[in-house]
Design a protein around this nucleic acid. Sequence first.
DNA 1: GTGCTGGACTGAAACGGTCTAGACAGGTTC
DNA 2: GAACCTGTCTAGACCGTTTCAGTCCAGCAC
Lengths: 346, 346
Amino acid sequence: MTRAARPAGKVTIAEVAQLAGVSKGSVSLAMNDKPGVSAATRKKVREAARELGWLPNQAARSLSSATTQVSNVGLVIARPARMLGLEPFYMEFVSGIESVLAERSHSLLLRLVRDVREEIDVLDGWSRSKQISGSIMVDFTLDDPRVAAVAALGLPVIAVGHPSLTGGLPSVWTDDAAAVTEAVRYLAALGHRRLARVGGPARLGHTALRSEAFTQAVADLKLEPARILTTDFSGEQGARATRALLSSARRPTAILYDNDIMAVAGLSVATEMGVPVPAELSLLAWDDSQLCRLTHPPLSAMSHDVFAFGAEVTRRLMDLVGRGETEHGPAPTPVLVPRGTTARAH
Amino acid sequence: MTRAARPAGKVTIAEVAQLAGVSKGSVSLAMNDKPGVSAATRKKVREAARELGWLPNQAARSLSSATTQVSNVGLVIARPARMLGLEPFYMEFVSGIESVLAERSHSLLLRLVRDVREEIDVLDGWSRSKQISGSIMVDFTLDDPRVAAVAALGLPVIAVGHPSLTGGLPSVWTDDAAAVTEAVRYLAALGHRRLARVGGPARLGHTALRSEAFTQAVADLKLEPARILTTDFSGEQGARATRALLSSARRPTAILYDNDIMAVAGLSVATEMGVPVPAELSLLAWDDSQLCRLTHPPLSAMSHDVFAFGAEVTRRLMDLVGRGETEHGPAPTPVLVPRGTTARAH
DNA sequence: GTGCTGGACTGAAACGGTCTAGACAGGTTC
DNA sequence: GAACCTGTCTAGACCGTTTCAGTCCAGCAC
């Protein structure tokens, strides 16, 4: 271990300067690869620094030069902690983020909060205390107050959400409307006339967008008016919604879910209620995490490489932080992957 | 929004002092709730600060007083990013961590690395740059180099792992040996004589501990010698291991898995190979995430509240950081939850 | 020799807080 | 009235960097 040699106490630039026989200024120049020192001096300084195990004090550094060089990226999620572990989307999203951060020696500063107000405070704090160089924002609502707040902070941010929601922030999004439309068309092509959708919380912008596209597609294809239930994305509420749909008078023959976990729960409910899938009921999940391949029958899904999505979002954030700009555009649209839970309507 | 009023530029303590008509020192005293200022002055200062939207510069603060008040906790995981999203354990563990951190306004600094060397460097950097007040360490190996490294850093750390692995660091662990023994006894009581186990990577300490306990229990009960296969915890390798076991000459009648994802994959393999579960094969998962309740039949598992475990680990870390000490002891032992994949041997 | 140039290096001024020693006012105690 | 508190407040040192205005000096042109 090289680190065994390092003295315990804290070394300052002055000591390095003394050992190298130069001034503090020269040490700073030498260590930061700036011009103004000869190669010989640079070498001498380097050696002194290594010998003393000196690493610059981050606080002092960022105090004197406003240009703090932090290598953290923020992510604030306003959902209950319990949900994070259950919702495969976030895990894969975070994994994708980490995959890009890791190769650039960056870390993710992750925080769960109760509401948007708290989220703004957290971002404010992180930004002021220079703990992050940028942040990823998710779960946009209509007229999201974070847009203005973050603009005022001057913090580089990539918004995950449709531009109609993210108010001019550089954004990455998936074309949910197109995906929903594809799903509805597919189900209609299979002969389904009575669809339903189990969606996320109504306050979320992308839920609204999907709902709108769903209703529109159903109307365009002249299917029966479709029910849309909203949930908190949890398996429990997905199960409850499914139970409600299946026990209603005119039960749907196909259900589109807004995430995997609810689709899986829905499949269980159907089985437990004796509704054969896919013979009498088609189910279509969203996101297509590994879960979808684990059930019996395996879930058909709107497939979406969430890991790659997280990676792409992060790549753009790094772009924004590094070059000051990045492209602004959609990620690949989720694509329908038929598996065992969708079939012709009987 | 209250924050709309805040001027864009950065406000310093001097401006607050001027507006309040006092000295910098008084502002510092007043804002930090320290004695030495009258109530009237304190109020005046508070108002001036609010009016200017002043928040102390963290860098300056931690430069002058060595006692930086950071509210981040570190977690470094030396596994590939892909795995993080797939392995329910980590997600639930992280959720549990966040649940405790959130209520104390702390954040999690998360980093994925390739190996232990890199992990040590990351902890070193975080510690020096005062980015975290403590860290959680996982995945201990025999003679883990992190133990010495972290001791040298003087960083408060909670180790997740059996004390035989964590070399004196304050630790939290589950009694895996007891749990494995319970699992083996249960399967033996069901009449199974030929067991197998699909475990994690051999280098991990807790895999070794479980393997040892497994072999011991099998021997104690005079069952047939049992095969143990090691994997990387992924579903693919779990499937492959199961396939190998089921296609071997004398195939086991019961398999114990080291996590959920492999058990789920194993169940799929059994179904696809036409081996009825649980009629001819009993499967027992580990961790018992939500996954286990989603399969058909639902997986029997060594159940372990990973969320609560993560929360407990974090609570102890906060203890350690705050009070300088914490208890050192085991978390609840995983408990066997029989569901649909275990039955009497035929 | 003088005057210039430019590269290497230095010294000291920021940066924005905290903290300490001491000033000052007003009250108590002898 | 002097001595001594005690509570409030201030001036200024200090934390460890970066940065910038200079100094110094070798080299070169004239």
